[in-house]
Design a protein around this nucleic acid. Sequence first.
DNA 1: ATAAACCTTAGAGTTAAATCTAAGGTCAAG
DNA 2: CTTGACCTTAGATTTAACTCTAAGGTTTAT
Lengths: 158, 158
Amino acid sequence: MYRIGELAKQCEVKADTLRFYEKHGLLSPSMRSDSGYRLYSEQDAERLRFILRAKAVGFTLSEITELLSIDLDKSNWACADVKGMVDIKLANVEEKIAELNHFRVSLQRLSDACCGGPESAEHCSILEALESNVEVKCENHSHDHGETEYKTSCKLKG
Amino acid sequence: MYRIGELAKQCEVKADTLRFYEKHGLLSPSMRSDSGYRLYSEQDAERLRFILRAKAVGFTLSEITELLSIDLDKSNWACADVKGMVDIKLANVEEKIAELNHFRVSLQRLSDACCGGPESAEHCSILEALESNVEVKCENHSHDHGETEYKTSCKLKG
DNA sequence: ATAAACCTTAGAGTTAAATCTAAGGTCAAG
DNA sequence: CTTGACCTTAGATTTAACTCTAAGGTTTAT
Ligand SMILES: [Zn+2]
Ligand SMILES: [Zn+2]
Ligand SMILES: [Zn+2]
Ligand SMILES: [Zn+2]
């Protein structure tokens, strides 16, 4: 039997988190000491590890609640049900990745367009791109820093 | 001059959102009508579009506040400052993508390991993977669905 | 016996970006 | 002159997953 702090340390979470999981029905200690301290069994610890593993692959706590209830009642569920949950999650994650990739490409384009030098930002391509609607398409400045290093040739979007 | 609802519709946000931006110092209408209605100028509208463009590339509202203050005072900032912000954001986004990719790979592995059939989940590889610490490494079941389609050969991690 | 480290509870606070509610004022059309 | 669409405000609620606070009880070691 572990006290809350012991289990927390073992699994690298805060004791608060275990109380939170209890309040939300994910994990209750199977005993209390005479003085009211939570006492977790090895089974409880395993359940916690299940939760943390599911969290590590991206499930939310309410999805994990569902997974736990399936896990405790496996014979009444089909592989299809379980795989369905994973596949929905997978689709969510892929969607999120796609969205972030969109951000990434836009930010990269902005970054590439700016010299990043110590010169005044008065003609900074990044600010100009945000001011106007024009997407940045090439990696040069409108302003001239007096260095040949920065080309001013720019093929704007055809 | 646009009233709040007009500008909101034009830019496809809710009027609430404009009030929210005002409360948080991102965008205030440059006038009020006699009766107290907000009146936005074309300049205000442009500022809103700046905000929305910055949002579209992944900046948070507080980052946008910073960008706006730079934009209004460009000569006191360097390209380095602006590019720095973009690059920090880019790094954040890439970090998030990496994390989600981790989720994606794990979920894909789980999904691949499960037949997804109508059979009982009693030996579902997904649940087994979450119960035990073993990462799923191959795409077969421990249980046998009586179909030769599902191989039982599985090279577990060496 | 007393201090440190641990535990208990209920409930509030955090973060971001809105979104909603209530109670009321304004404006154009018919 | 009334309906309906629109506007005003302050403040509460939402979502997720904690995290913290206050006020107190327990255990363990010295
Ligand atoms: Zn520059
Ligand atoms: Zn620049
Ligand atoms: Zn199966
Ligand atoms: Zn399965």
